[in-house]
Computed example of a mutant assay.
Amino acid sequence: MFRRIAALGFCVLLLGGWHAAQIGPGPGPAKGASTGWPVPRFESFRSDQIYMRAGPGFQYPITWVYHRYDLPVEVIGEFNVWRHVMAPDGGTGWVHEALLHLVRSFIVTGKRHAMRAGPHSGAAPVAYLDKGVIGVIRACRADADWCRVSAGHRNGWLKRSDFWGSFAGEEIR
């Protein structure tokens, strides 16, 4: 009888530990198992030819090939030197860490949007950015709807809702 209770108690502890490992350490952002950095987070492609694979290893087939340098991707998981990423088009797959860098880029979504001289709708336009334009996020305040950005040789402000590449309420410096 004692052995059954002890075995059952061991199983409960084992399953409880496995469940805790699956859901993360508790409140706050989850940490990547390999880097210790927050997951999810945004990074960008380091090359203009990226092979996205079906699994975390070179033995897995290539499912997507991306040809967009600095395309922002959301890192949604980690396994050793592989990153599970989601692209702006919703495609997911695994990319080797060497193909990513920490440049905070954005991609314009929807229709054409004005990059403005200041962080408000009344500011003068400095450029018009079409859907699919990629640029660099220079700064976003956590409590602001506008981010300071660069695209091409232009600098200005873009509404956070006009691009993909940052989380709502995220501060970027």
Rank of each mutant, 00 (worst) to 15 (best):
Q22Y: 12
G24H: 04
P25Y: 11
P25D: 13
G26Y: 00
P27S: 05
G28K: 02
A30P: 05
S34A: 07
S34E: 04
T35W: 00
W37Q: 14
P38L: 01
P38Q: 05
V39Y: 02
V39S: 04
P40K: 03
S44M: 05
A54F: 03
G57W: 07
P61D: 14
T63V: 15
W64T: 15
Y66C: 13
H67R: 15
R68D: 15
R68P: 02
Y69M: 09
D70F: 12
E74N: 01
V75A: 07
I76T: 09
F79H: 14
N80H: 13
W82G: 00
H84P: 00
H84A: 06
H84Y: 11
H84T: 03
V85C: 05
P88N: 08
W94C: 04
W94Y: 07
V95Q: 09
V95C: 08
E97I: 15
A98F: 06
L102A: 12
L102Y: 08
L102N: 11
V103M: 03
R104Y: 06
S105C: 10
S105G: 05
R112I: 14
H113K: 03
H120Y: 13
S121E: 12
G122Q: 10
G122K: 09
A123H: 00
A127N: 00
Y128M: 08
L129D: 04
K131A: 14
G132T: 11
V133Q: 14
V133S: 13
V136E: 10
V136S: 07
R138N: 09
R138P: 01
A139E: 15
